[in-house]
Computed example of a mutant assay.
Amino acid sequence: MKQKNLHQYPLVWRKDDFFIKIYSSIPNVSTGILLTTSKTAFIVDPGDGILRDLTKDVGPETILRVSDIFISHGHHDHVGGVWSLLTYWSVLRRKTPLSIYYPEGCVEIESIYKAFNEVYGKELSYKITLKPISDQKAFTRNSVRIKPFKVNHRELNPDGTSAEIPSLGFKYYYDSKSICYGGDTAYCENLVKMAKGSDLAIIEAGALDEESTDLHMTVAQAKEIGKTAKEFFLVHVPDE
Rank of each mutant, 00 (worst) to 15 (best):
A220C: 04
D239V: 14
E108Q: 09
I20V: 13
F232Y: 05
Q221Y: 10
P60R: 13
F139R: 06
A229C: 04
P46S: 05
Q3I: 01
L51F: 09
D77S: 15
A41F: 03
H76G: 08
L64N: 14
S84H: 11
L35S: 03
D17E: 06
P158A: 10
V91Y: 09
K223C: 11
I128Y: 07
Q8P: 08
L54M: 14
Q136L: 13
S25R: 12
N157E: 05
K196L: 08
P148T: 14
K227A: 06
T228E: 13
S72N: 15
R14M: 11
K56D: 14
D135S: 12
T36G: 06
V107T: 15
P158S: 13
I100F: 02
P103N: 05
T140Q: 12
L200A: 00
Y173N: 09
G49K: 00
Y102N: 03
N142G: 01
A201E: 05
Q8F: 14
S162K: 06
T37I: 00
S167Y: 01
S176F: 10
Y9Q: 05
T129C: 14
S67K: 03
I165P: 08
I128Q: 04
D45V: 00
K21P: 01
D184M: 12
H216W: 10
T31L: 00
L200K: 01
P46R: 05
A229L: 06
T213V: 07
P166R: 08
D159W: 09
G160N: 07
K4P: 01
G169F: 07
G226W: 04
L54I: 13
M194T: 02
D135E: 09
T40Y: 04
C180L: 00
A201M: 02
A229K: 06
A195P: 04
I43H: 02
R52P: 03
F42W: 14
E104T: 12
I26Y: 11
K196M: 09
I63C: 09
L6E: 15
Y120V: 01
I43T: 06
N5A: 14
K122I: 01
I33G: 04
H78W: 11
S176R: 10
P27A: 02
Y23L: 10
V58Y: 13
I26T: 12
G80D: 08
W83K: 02
E108K: 07
T228Y: 13
E123M: 09
Y126F: 15
E104S: 15
R94W: 04
L156G: 11
I63E: 06
R52A: 15
S30G: 03
Y102G: 05
F19R: 15
L98Y: 00
V219P: 00
K127E: 13
A195N: 08
L85N: 02
G197S: 11
N152I: 00
Y187K: 13
S25T: 13
A220Y: 09
E164F: 13
V58D: 05
V235M: 09
P238E: 03
A207R: 08
P27Q: 10
T140L: 08
I26N: 10
K147T: 15
T40V: 02
T96L: 07
G32H: 00
P148V: 15
